[in-house]
Amino acid sequence: MVTLEYVSRLQVVSGKGGTGKTTVAAALALALADEGKRTLLVEVEGRQGIAQLFETEALPYEERKIAVAPGGGEVYALAIDPELALLDYLQMFYKLGGAGRALKKLGAIDFATTIAPGLRDVLLTGKACEAVRRKEKSGRFAYDYVVMDAPPTGRITRFLNVNDEVAGLAKIGPIHNQAQAVMRVLKSPETAVHLVTLLEEMPVQETADGIAELRAAKLPVGQVIVNMVRPEVLDAAELELVRGTARSSFAQSLSAAGLGGARRGGHAERLVDPLLAQAEEYAERYALEHEQRAVLGELGLPLHELPLLAEGMDLAGLYELATELRKQGMS
């Protein structure tokens, strides 16, 4: 937390499927909600993952408070529904409430939000940027930070860049202007795109590819968050020692700890093989994890690590991860 670095107001969290990006996004929203601060956690893929994490009922298309953070700040959440967002948009920016209803009757809204999925991405990014820029009457920002649980790494660059494409398609008119305004926010230091990964080959590879794509598109890459890091129970030197130790010595130790007889066929003795097999699996994973950490180190980005929660993910665990992110200076 002792950091003077500028923290971007729009924090986009992406990552390969299965890496826990929704969890990290939620923990980050909690971490950023310091005393007196207000964050908005935005879900764009309609899976109600946020509601499940915070153990609340399904979120409507409406910003509502879902948590009070450890420092006393507040976390609001919003699950964006593309169809409602479009109607919202037409009204807000183009004063076209009536036309919106007409479009809906004609199936145009359906067209925009399902058949032409690019427009769906326009709405999702547009809505998030609107929340970032929104101000209260007092002049202060409605939300200090907006955290987006974004589409996965493979799709994130295209998702964020969709407005560039739109601005290219609609060369004049309000859509063009709106698209450009959104891109200005997304390409500025006001935005940071974080990638969540695991210490496994495929997610790390995808993270490296994703960063290259983001950079090529001139989108601001934030930090890499390694999720579900397992504790180091034995280090490399200890694993070496394990390999060099006689089975009978382990059997004696196990027996001494009250786990049965050490003689051949005794309970303790029969535990040795499976325990050593598990140690071998651990050693193999340990070596792979070291390789992957080295690959991540070469990306030249700040790395954060979040522990695997032994008891599984629940609300208490979420707060634990938020505290961890604060400790590591991510907020």
């Binding site: 504790p231 130790t245 382990f250 001494a256 598990q278």
Partner: peptide, 28 residues
């Protein structure tokens, strides 16, 4: 103290404790 400290003089009981902790993690 099973991680982070010098390990060259780890005894068999300490290593066995490590194996048991790995097992506990696996069982969880």
């Amino acid at each position: 103290g099973s991680s982070g400290s010098p390990t060259s003089n780890r005894t068999v009981p300490q290593l066995t404790a490590g194996l048991l902790r790995l097992h506990a993690e696996r069982m969880q």
